[in-house]
Design a protein around this nucleic acid. Sequence first.
DNA 1: CCACTGACGAGTG
DNA 2: GCACTCGCCAGTG
Length: 113
Amino acid sequence: MSASGDDNTWTRIYATVRRIPAGRVATYGQVASVAGLGRLARVVGYALAAVVDSSTVPWHRVINARGEISMRHDGPGGGVLQRLRLEREGVRFDARGRVSLAEFGWRPRVRKS
DNA sequence: CCACTGACGAGTG
DNA sequence: GCACTCGCCAGTG
């Protein structure tokens, strides 16, 4: 992609996503905010969509503000892999397939027990 | 340079 | 809590 020195927005997004600990989930808006990108939630999703599974980026820990897994373009079943990965890390899903952000929501900087 | 698209968010009814 | 609308910025053709 870019010639070199990829200080693009994408690199920042990946760096932030890597900070998300296992068993925790962060929203696109939160990642964008922590990355210092403001409200580039859309770009965050776009960047994660371009990431490959072989990447070191735990893209599966990033979900939307609804606490649900966003669907790519494959329709239903597209986020099954993501859900299995999160469950394997200890994240619980409700009957609707939603996660409690109040419980598993990632809290950058401030850690309140 | 212009137009359309896209793993979203926040506000309103 | 859910459905609809507008706004956000970057990437691609």
